[in-house]
Amino acid sequence: MTLLLASFAPPYWLSTLIKVLVISAVVPTTALILGMVFLFKIMSWMQSRLGPQEAGPRGTLQLLADGVKFLQKEDIAPNGADLWVFKVAPLVVLMSTLLLYVALPASMHLVVADLDVGVFFVLAIASLSVIGVLMAGWSSANKYSLMGALRAAGQLIAYELPMVLAVIGVVIQAGTMSLNGIVLAQNNGSIFGWGGIGFPYILTQFLGFFIFIAAVQAELTQPPFDMPVAESEIVSGYQVEYTGFRFLIFFLAEFATAFAFAAIAAVLFLGGWAVPWLPTASDWYYVLGPMVLFAKVMIVSFIIFWVRFTYPRFREDQLQSLAWKVLIPLALVNIVVTAVLKVVL
C-alpha cells in the first residue's frame, strides 16, 4: 500500500482537486476533534463535571449536533452593520486558517505545498486572521465588538514578534526554513555527536518552545490572553453580533487554528511526523507520519488547553508589558545563544 502511495502521480488538476478536498475536509475535522476532546471532555474532567453525555456514545457527537444547530439558525446582522464587510469577515478568518494547513507536512510527501520558506509562510499567513477580526469588530457597529477588535489588533502586533523570534532559533539550528527540512534536520541531527534518539529541538530550544507556546496562546486569544473575546468584560468581543453559521465559522477557525499551531509547534520543536529510530526515508511514514504528527499535536494541544482552563486573564497593558519586556528580550537572548552555539559547536 505504501508503495502504491509512493508511486501515485496524478495529473496536476487532479492533485489540486484532491488537495483542496482534503484540506476542506481536514480543517473542520481537526476543529471538531479539538473541540470535542478538549473543550468538552478534558475541560469537564478538569472541572470535575461530566460534560456532554447524550449525543452519541458518551456525548462524542455533541459538537456535531451543535454545528447542525448553528446551521439551522437565522443569519442575523445588526441594523447599523456594514453588511458586506460583516458577512465576509468570518470567511477571511477561515481563509487564514485554511492557508495555514497548506504548508503543514504530515510526512515527507503528504504535504499540499512543500515550500522552501514554509516557516515564513506559516507565520505570515497566521497574522492574516486579524484582518478578519478587525473587519468583524468594525462592521458589527457595536462598541464591545470594536473594543475586542482593537484589543485583538494590539495583541497581534505584540505577539507576532516573540513568535517569530522564538522560531528563528529553530531556523538557525536547522539551517533551513522549510518545514520538512526542519523535521529532517531534527531526526538526522545529533546532540553532541550522539544521534540515537534523533534530535527534537525542544531539548535545546526549550526557551523558544515556551515563548512560542505563550505567543500561540495569545494568537489564539485563549486564556490567559483572551482579552479580545473576554466574556466577562466585553462580552465575547468581536463575535458578539454573530449568530448561526457565521459564528460557527469563527468557532471552526479558532479550533482549526489551534490545531494548526499545535502542529507547527510539533514540527518545529518535537520532530514533526518522524519518530526516532525509524529513518525518515522509510515508506512507512505515508501511514505512520500523520498518526505521529496527530499524537504530538494532541500533546501540545493538551498543554495549550490546560493553561486555558486554569489561568485567569491578563489585562491588556499587562499583556503588552509581558510581550515587550519579557518574551521579546528572552527570545533575543535565545537567538544570540543559539547563534553562538551554532558557530562554536
Binding site: 472541572q47 486564556p223 490567559p224 466577562s232 489561568y311
Partner: peptide, 9 residues
Amino acid sequence: LGGMTAGFY
C-alpha cells in the same frame, strides 16, 4: 477574571 475553572469548583 477569566479563570473559569474556579467557578465550577
